[in-house]
Design a protein around this nucleic acid. Sequence first.
DNA 1: AAGTGGTCTAGACCACGTC
DNA 2: ACGTGGTCTAGACCACTTT
Lengths: 245, 245
Amino acid sequence: MQPMTRESPTFSPLYQQIKSLILQALEGGEWLPGQSIPSEQDLAVRFGVSQGTVRKAIDELSSENILLRRQGKGTFVASHHDPRALFRFLRLVPVGGGVSQPVSVPLECWRARAGQEAARNLGVAMGSSIIIIRRLLKFAEKPVVVDELYLPGDVFQSLTLEMLQDWNGSLYSLFETRFGVRMIRASERIRAVAAERATAEMLGVKEYTPLLSVERIAYTYGDRAVEWRRGLYSTADHCYLNELS
Amino acid sequence: MQPMTRESPTFSPLYQQIKSLILQALEGGEWLPGQSIPSEQDLAVRFGVSQGTVRKAIDELSSENILLRRQGKGTFVASHHDPRALFRFLRLVPVGGGVSQPVSVPLECWRARAGQEAARNLGVAMGSSIIIIRRLLKFAEKPVVVDELYLPGDVFQSLTLEMLQDWNGSLYSLFETRFGVRMIRASERIRAVAAERATAEMLGVKEYTPLLSVERIAYTYGDRAVEWRRGLYSTADHCYLNELS
DNA sequence: AAGTGGTCTAGACCACGTC
DNA sequence: ACGTGGTCTAGACCACTTT
């Protein structure tokens, strides 16, 4: 592999090309979440570039939380099994300051056809098969979030309510393990809404209580949207924490 | 300058030490926001290290939005005058998808003594002098946010309501220009609350309308807290956008 | 001792912006 | 033509982990 010259219309730095090749390998399942990838030196030989160039590619993938470097041990494919990954996608902290692990309680799971909004958010055709999940998130036995998720049916074909209930771990670790779908990034749109009666009951708050409405679109490799969800957060005992930097 | 050995109890990589020295120079006002800093080669000579080491230090400062590299031109001290810096600290987008610049409308500005909460959040002694600002944020003539800010009195001594009203630009660009205080990062805690009567009137919504309560602590160099604010956001036409990555 | 990532250096050349 | 940051290389040595 050689650096292209400015003459090339598709010019990009060598380390970016290496980064793409590594991403391809990841997407193709050559190295699975939790496993180590080859050493920098091996990859340098494989791609025919210097170790420094591989290093720079891995640096970026590492800062994007796609790979994880561990000195002396190697470089690993990031996994949602890692408890540190949890807070990345669930930015809820107790208002008092303590710590407690969330417990996911799946309520329903059914098939449907994509409406206009779901189709747009998931990047699929209207009328195509989708899966809808409703679920509760509890902290220390107390319900804090009620979620509704929309997933593309083709990707999550064999998903059932039982599978969700039998799994103890995050949804994303289930998706990663059972469906080979690893969430890379997401964007959330947050608004304030009043609790409707059914929601209020599930969360144990009064009707019309202000709640956070958190709408998320999550993406896997190649910026492909594979989840659209809307959560209603009770912020009596927890708040959404965001670090601006 | 030389790399320390593992024997040293204060071991840190050379490039981290260079990074600290650059931060010191920034904090000391050696290079002001918007200005360029010396070239990598000059800094390498000044600090007695290789260009690559300076480069790595600047890389990190650049990824933290403290410096800004421009190929062919040089490396610049980031400034809140840069319109791109605005969205970093105000993650509001129109729900329709259009674009419009916010306009800040200062309402009040007065002196007070720090209570327990303000003292804790600003890292000052209880009873010390603080400044409180109330202000409205409008998008396309419509009020969307009402803010209350708490600032340490010693840092912002000469601040007046007139100064705020005469300034057209963001608050942070005022702080940077008039008080030499540059905000580096902030952390926000978001909850949902019901609008009180006075707030509802200012935002043009009904009493008890659900609003976002966004509480922010902002930090300058050396992780020193220099602002505590609470904003109430009307999310009828705008929503808070957060990218999880 | 061997293998991994982490740091540091020196030098070559490219791409961008200004003079 | 010159100066700036951006890329790429090759090699040395350090720090951490495992064998």
